[in-house]
């Protein structure tokens, strides 16, 4: 059960972030749209984009799977698992989104993943 939840959390987090990154780069939001008076319109606009709706659905799955994981495992186990997704997402950003991930960015991502794992101890 524990490892099934881990797989669901990592898988759904990765899919949600990839979908968000892909869709938000197709239609970039301008800084003016972040003004308080325009936030409602921005929210409505984003809710009409299919990939973002699917991404939020995956985020919800990840959230509830995390809650379930906390009920069967320690927090010190659950949090490092989310840190592992940083390294996996960096790899997929390179392969799927065609981002240029150089040595410095790889070092940074792995350092952050180690750091988050240590924070959870």
């Amino acid at each position: 059960m524990k490892w099934l939840m881990v797989a669901i959390i990592v898988g759904s987090t990765v899919l949600a972030d990839l979908l968000q990154s892909y869709e938000m780069k197709r239609h970039v939001v301008a800084v003016e749209d972040l003004r308080p008076g325009r936030l409602g319109g921005l929210l409505r606009g984003l809710a009409r984009r299919g990939p973002l709706v699917v991404a939020v659905f995956f985020m919800a799955i990840s959230f509830f799977a995390f809650m379930k994981l906390l009920s069967v495992a320690d927090l010190s186990f659950a949090v490092p698992v989310t840190a592992a997704s940083v390294a996996l997402e960096t790899l997929l950003a390179r392969l799927v989104l065609r981002e240029k991930v150089g040595a410095l960015r790889w070092a940074g991502a792995l350092s952050v993943a180690c750091g988050v794992a240590l924070l959870a101890m």
């Binding site: 410095l104 960015r105 940074g108 101890m121």
Partner: peptide, 29 residues
């Protein structure tokens, strides 16, 4: 936790030194 904090700060500095957008389209308004 302090060691983890140090790792995270080093990682952020490393990533902060790289270009934020490598897939083109720099439209931040």
């Amino acid at each position: 936790r302090w060691l983890g904090t140090g790792f995270i700060v080093i990682g952020i500095v490393c990533v902060g030194l790289t270009a934020a957008n490598t897939t083109k389209r720099e439209t931040a308004g």
